[in-house]
């Protein structure tokens, strides 16, 4: 069979291809395969292109094609009769190691099948052009699991403002933190043990806040938040809430 038509189509624009060698009776036994590949040779999902063969008013045969995504496509039209289908079924069953009885029955049916429609096909290529739509935004990250948290403040304590001093005391005596099993540290930036957390806050000027999971052994899990220390206790608790605490 020979498929002829445009070499190039705009994305989302339809195109017609004529199919020579396809008969009206073949359409009952016809399958159409459209395979797309992107610039990297990766297969484009099949639902991005639609190919429909049909018979026109004048008795000619045509293929309707529209693609949602630009790329290079290979369009194959296949006439696969009853006998040909059974040949494929037997081959598939053999490679899949289907149990012998079923395979035997398939072979039996296949051998008895009269088939006037031997396997035939035709192929052409098509380039679909046009800017693809932007990829859909990634799904929002799942909400963090709730649990115990470390709330770690790192700053030069000499610079503590009255507002920060107030917040440190509010966090220190917070019944909310203690009721949830959270722990609060108010570290000076040159204190022994503070350096890894200070490094974590690289690029943050002024007092910095880090929130991590608080593990069962009292260690710190992965960092869930890092940034400037909020101005108030309420704002800090809001960030803690956003990160499962």
């Amino acid at each position: 069979m020979v498929i002829t038509g445009p070499d190039k189509l705009q994305r989302n624009a339809y195109g017609w291809f004529s199919v020579i060698g396809l008969q009206a009776a073949d359409l009952q036994k016809t399958s159409v395969y459209c395979v797309g590949v992107d610039a990297n040779g990766q297969t484009i999902p099949i639902d991005t292109i639609t190919c429909i063969p049909f018979t026109g008013w004048g008795g000619g045969h045509a293929l309707f094609v529209v693609a949602q995504q630009s790329g290079n496509y290979t369009i194959t039209i296949t006439v696969n009769g009853w006998r040909g289908s059974l040949d494929r079924a037997v081959a598939d069953a053999t490679s899949a190691a289907i149990e012998t009885d079923l395979l035997g029955q398939l072979q039996l049916v296949r051998d008895k099948a009269a088939d006037t429609y031997p396997y035939r096909n035709g192929t052409t290529t098509l380039e679909v052009v046009g800017a693809n739509p932007p990829p859909p935004p990634p799904p929002p990250p799942p909400p963090p699991e709730t649990g115990k948290r470390w709330i770690i403040l790192v700053r030069e304590s000499q610079q503590d403002s009255p507002a920060l001093a107030l917040q440190i005391m509010e966090l220190r005596v917070s019944t909310y933190l203690s009721s949830k099993g959270h722990a609060f540290l108010a570290l000076d930036d040159d204190q022994t043990g503070a350096k890894p957390w200070l490094d974590e806050l690289s690029g943050v000027s002024g007092p910095g806040l880090i929130i991590t999971e608080r593990l069962a052994d009292n260690g710190a899990g992965p960092v869930l938040f890092k940034g400037p220390m909020p101005a108030t206790y309420e704002a800090t608790i809001a960030i803690l809430n956003e990160h499962g605490g």
């Binding site: 304590s157 540290l185 022994t192 043990g193 260690g219 710190a220 992965p222």
Partner: peptide, 15 residues
């Protein structure tokens, strides 16, 4: 303003 970290467990390390 600042006292020593009298034991390692006072300040956790990130896992």
């Amino acid at each position: 303003r600042v006292v020593s970290t009298w034991d390692d467990w006072l300040i956790p390390r990130e896992m």
